[in-house]
Amino acid sequence: MADSSANHSNYVSGTFSKDAFILRQLVSTDFKLKYRRSILGVVWSVLNPLLMMIVMSVVFSYMFRYNIENYPLYLIIGNITFAFMSDSTNQGMTSIINASSLLKKIKVDRFLFPVQKVLFALVNFAFSFVAVLAVMLWFRVVPTWHFILLPVCLLLLVVFCSGLGLLLSAAAVFFRDVMHLWGVVITAWNYLTPVFWDAQMLVDNHAPWFVLAVVRLNPMYNYIQFMRDIVLWQTVPSFETVALCVVWAVVMIAIGIFVFKKTEHKFILYI
């Protein structure tokens, strides 16, 4: 029994080490491919959110600012957080299809490909967050101890996006239309999320209760609110916000793993 337990432990440890190594190699490869032959390289990951913030601030500051203090900072936090979800799910959705030649040649855990896209998006998010720090410096917003909650928010968001990526990657293998429909969903989701507008506008304009419920139960509303609380408002997120972030992460990863595991044995027939 002792030998059997030891062998099982060694097998699990070996599998984990192998998967971790493959993930590192895949993320590294994506990173090199993205910035290959780029003069500015990773600087683009900092400049892009800054340029988007400037343009959107000019366009929306008079329409949607709604007395929001440090509106550009409010805007860039919402933008990079939503972009993290959008980029990771868009890339994760096609990860199995794009890796078809590799999956046909060698035996590798298929779930690594959608998860790797989420981790790569996290790397890009880290560079984009430098832009947030630059905007904080410009507006003289000094980071507080609330920043220690940032890894918690990112962990929950990574789990949520991983679950969604697993679900979408499995669906896209069998139904290619998912890749076209997801672009429409992301666009609608972006407008439904208070990225450049304030949810308080709905309350003050007496929006129907079900509209308020849809917005506040929106997963990205809660993750963005979490980010803004600790970076912009410098306060501890409310229990409701944290609870909904946890619930969405757990629910989505459970659904994603269930669907992926139920269908992955058929992938080879459709890719």
Rank of each mutant, 00 (worst) to 15 (best):
S17Y: 09
L51K: 03
L202C: 04
N10Y: 09
V211A: 04
T15S: 12
A188H: 02
R24L: 07
V123E: 06
I96Q: 06
L192C: 11
N190H: 10
T15E: 14
N90G: 09
D87Q: 13
I224L: 09
D198N: 15
M201L: 10
V173Q: 03
V158T: 14
F196H: 11
V246E: 05
V132N: 02
E69G: 09
R228Y: 10
R216D: 05
L75C: 07
A170F: 06
Y11G: 02
T187Y: 00
V203A: 12
Y191M: 12
G183C: 03
V214Y: 03
S169W: 01
M220G: 05
I22P: 00
Q200N: 14
N218K: 04
L73W: 07
S38Y: 08
N7P: 00
A131F: 09
W138T: 14
M52F: 06
Q116L: 03
V184L: 15
V211R: 00
P114C: 04
A172L: 11
L50F: 00
Y223C: 03
Y11V: 12
W248F: 15
A2K: 13
V231F: 09
F84I: 01
V132D: 02
M63N: 03
F31L: 14
N190D: 02
A2T: 14
E69C: 04
S61K: 15
I271S: 11
K262L: 12
V115K: 01
M93Q: 08
S100K: 12
S57P: 00
V236Y: 14
L149A: 14
S61V: 11
I76Q: 04
F111L: 00
A207S: 08
I80Q: 10
P72Y: 14
V141N: 02
V42G: 04
A249L: 11
C153D: 11
S128Y: 00
T89G: 03
S28K: 13
I148E: 03
R110P: 05
G183W: 07
S4D: 05
K18S: 14
S169P: 02
W138L: 15
F31H: 10
P219T: 12
L103M: 10
L168D: 07
L50W: 01
L217Q: 03
Q234Y: 00
L50N: 01
I106F: 01
F226G: 11
Y74L: 04
V152T: 09
S100H: 10
W145K: 10
L192F: 10
F258E: 04
T241W: 07
W138N: 10
L157Q: 15
I96V: 13
P143C: 03
I268S: 12
V242G: 05
R110D: 06
N7V: 11
R24A: 07
R37I: 06
L40S: 04
V123I: 12
A207F: 03
L181A: 13
C245M: 07
A134D: 02
I106N: 00
L232R: 09
F175Q: 06
N205T: 10
L149T: 09
A249P: 04
L103Q: 01
G163S: 05
N67D: 15
V159I: 15
K117I: 02
N222T: 10
D19L: 08
M56G: 06
V132S: 00
L137T: 13
F31A: 11
F129T: 06
